[in-house]
Design a protein around this nucleic acid. Structure first.
Lengths: 188, 188
DNA sequence: CAAATACTATACCGATCGGTATAATGGCGG
DNA sequence: CCGCCATTATACCGATCGGTATAGTATTTG
């Protein structure tokens, strides 16, 4: 295991467990069994370390989301694919999803939120585009794409949060329930 | 304005804006135009300050919730009342709701989460009790009270979050949409 | 083989962290 | 008027914060 990867892994774990601000640089390098200059050689700053972690993870995840959000005329199918990507992502990589959720709900002026914001904006734009394309078939959604995208992603976040704390099981059945529930909100 | 109240107000605002860990004690006392011994006289520690802030706010809010969650045989009505309490609370006191949401999504091991947890547990218990009482009329919910309570509160949180960031308007219309959507999830 | 480059440790920086010892101030009851 | 208690400021504590100057050791490249 090279030291750079070990630093990324240990830092992600610590940030997810105790929060970005509460974890010191010294603690990270101790966990990775290196010293501070090594960390600063690779990442430049504590913030640079966080940006690298989130950049790598979101690069991977948002690519999956992009493929799932490729709209081909069937809105429920597309939403289902998106939900599956979120739920499977959270099950495969709970540490990252915990971190990312905590930072997303952190105060607007906090470092963590600012770093995570642009990646969430990417996700939002992908989902909003789906709803915009679907307006052709679902005219009653016209003008509501922004609210719908925010609501859908928010719903997925909320269930991911429940899943991470064992209040729900992120399985195919829950996907169906979420989609059905959300569609009912649209068509009413 | 007495200094104690001023400290509570300024600290709540700063914590909500930039996060509990990112705000230092010195900054709080400067904002309140006092010095550190004054803060430590009243609250004992930084954590004690946070506990007092959240204790006061949740004491007030959870009492409203308790009244709204008094079940009298009409589940949709009770859920509607609960949703209204959340939405009106968030509109009246957005600073507190921002803070409380951020702490709730903070890592399990963080100080902030630990302080906020017991008050959320109160809320959860109140809502779970509603579903348990409603099982008499809605037998298909039997055994799912825990998941339903978590899902309902999570839904409200998610819309409060949207409202705080202007992705939704926390009005009576949204209450109806949330209730209808949630009921559809139950009865299916 | 020489020189450059990448990587990593020791030891340190000033600033800030949460918290406190001491003492001065003020109002209030006896 | 005296003594008590609550409140507040000055000045300080050791520890930790994020970050770095310097130098050593590999590894790679010419």
């Amino acid at each position: 295991m090279d030291t750079r990867t070990e630093l990324l892994r240990q830092a992600e774990k610590l940030f997810a467990q105790r929060g970005y601000d509460a974890v010191g640089v010294q603690e990270i390098v101790d966990a990775a069994s290196v010293t501070k200059p090594t960390l600063y050689h690779y990442f430049g700053s504590k913030r640079g370390l966080l940006e690298t972690i989130l950049g790598d993870e979101f690069h991977f995840f948002n690519q999956l989301l992009r493929e799932a959000a490729y709209y081909q005329g069937d809105l429920p199918l597309t939403l289902r694919k998106i939900a599956i990507v979120f739920f499977e992502g959270a099950r495969r990589n709970p540490v990252f999803f915990r971190l990312q959720l905590a930072l997303w709900f952190a105060p607007r002026a906090s470092e963590g939120f600012q770093v995570v914001e642009k990646y969430h904006r990417e996700q939002f734009d992908l989902v909003e585009k789906v709803f915009t394309q679907a307006v052709v078939q679902h005219g009653n959604m016209r003008g509501k794409q922004r609210a719908l995208a925010a609501s859908f992603i928010g719903t997925l976040h909320h269930y991911v949060g429940l899943g991470l704390n064992d209040y729900a099981t992120l399985d195919a059945q829950l996907v169906e329930q979420v989609i059905k529930q959300f569609q009912h909100g649209i068509y009413s």
